[in-house]
Amino acid sequence: MKEKIGNIFNLSWHLAKVNFKLRNEGSYLGIFWYLLDPLLMFLVLYAVFSQNIGLQINHYPLYLLAGLIIFNFFSSVTSESASIISSNSHFIKSINIPAESLIFSLLFRNIFSHLFEIIIFCLFLAYFKLSVLGIIFYLPLFLLLFLFTAGISFILATLGVYANDLNNVWRFILQVLFFSSAIFYQYDPSITILKYNPLAIFINLNRQAFISLQKPEISWLFLILVSSVFLIGYAIFTKNKQKFAERI
């Protein structure tokens, strides 16, 4: 058992490194895209909203960037996971590898780029003369985000084997989530969609930690939700993974 987990971890880590390298293959700016992607999005939203919605929000640039970074992690992992099994069919069909490692490698690779974004965020904090100590609270929050994202990815990866349309459907859902997660406007728990959107809750908790330096208040209900998403996703995936090789 211990050997098996070590094996999955080792393989996921290696695949993450390989794909990180492959993504930058043949592009001029290479690794800088990891910085540029979120920054460009930030600049656009900032230019549009800083003089209206943003005026009522304290430290609006930080507020906006924190939202974008958290959302970006979730969306870049899940948007790829729907097609991850079929795009790695050459592995699945010829080597008996643990299929979970494809999902974990996707998560690990996005942690690399997430780290870059966190570094930018810390630079922002320093520029606005705020403490970077909030990062202590951030670590357990990230663990929860990781589990939640992994659970959703497991479900998407399994469904994606059976229906290619899932990619398009999920892209649309991500867009809906983007506008309903209080990324660029004020978070208000009295609005139903914000109260029940897990991403909005994640983003709000992270802002509490980073910007207000408060210990994030995580409700039991939320903890149970996150862990059950992970467990259910993982169960669905492992139950179906033996059928993947013949479906793709």
Partner: peptide
Amino acid sequence: YLTGFGQGIMPKLTMKENIYLIGTLLG
């Protein structure tokens, strides 16, 4: 399990990187 059709080989990687990749895939 051995097949002759270049199992798991990634064309955009170098030979050295491929050896490490296949080795890792094999555990």
